[in-house]
Design a protein around this nucleic acid. Sequence first.
DNA 1: TAAACCTTGACACGACCGTGGTAAGGTTGT
DNA 2: ACAACCTTACCACGGTCGTGTCAAGGTTTA
Lengths: 127, 127
Amino acid sequence: MEALTIHEAAETTGWSSRMLRYIERSGLVETPRSESGYRLYGPAQLQRLRTLRELLQKFEVSLTDVGFALRLERDPELRAAIEDWLRAEAHRPEHVAQSEWMSWEQRKHERLLQASTQSNTPVAEVR
Amino acid sequence: MEALTIHEAAETTGWSSRMLRYIERSGLVETPRSESGYRLYGPAQLQRLRTLRELLQKFEVSLTDVGFALRLERDPELRAAIEDWLRAEAHRPEHVAQSEWMSWEQRKHERLLQASTQSNTPVAEVR
DNA sequence: TAAACCTTGACACGACCGTGGTAAGGTTGT
DNA sequence: ACAACCTTACCACGGTCGTGTCAAGGTTTA
């Protein structure tokens, strides 16, 4: 059993051959090659291309998005860094260095005292 | 204790005020507002803006990338779908419908039989 | 050997990203 | 009251994404 050429694969998956190459370059769906360098699309790749298409459509994400998700998957350090940042939702003002605190405190404390006349005083909690 | 205005925050974080608004619109760093609608940057937001800057620089990711990571975090269904797709690296050709298998088999079997003369026969395993 | 494929590389082009600027109008501080 | 802020809403502009097409050259097949 063997595989389809790129244009045949394009036909049965709904992608254009141009996009098939583009998708490969982005690392999302790679194929084995024949001896002479032709891409060979087997059932596995065809399936993957179809589900990829469904994924993009259903969630309205872009190829670049999925490419980035792939990068996250392959680079645990990056993934950890980003997740840490995301989960550290604005909080604990105590963790801020005293120096920079002073810089604005100093400049603002007069008018801020005055501002406290207002009832509404928004704090650090966001969304 | 209160917060910095947008231009002050821009100065101490290295972002431009324009970008601060852009970052807010992308959902990455939101701030509370004063009664009259002014953005108020407290130590928490300042910290977040600085670490965001470091994150982008260190890993060479874009704001859109982090924005997408945020979306992944907030939409577990999307996250699951993408992770499933990513981890389902090309495999199990058996899962492909018989019908489409036939469509090319039929058209190709003659020349494929002939192609089997070649030693190299790439299979579904990728990367 | 000629037609019909395949390959990579380039040009093109509309849409959006990252960024700056400006305009029109409200708020704050002196 | 006036300067110096802030707000949102636009225009602009180079860069990249997604996509097509074309050129120059190798492969397969009839």
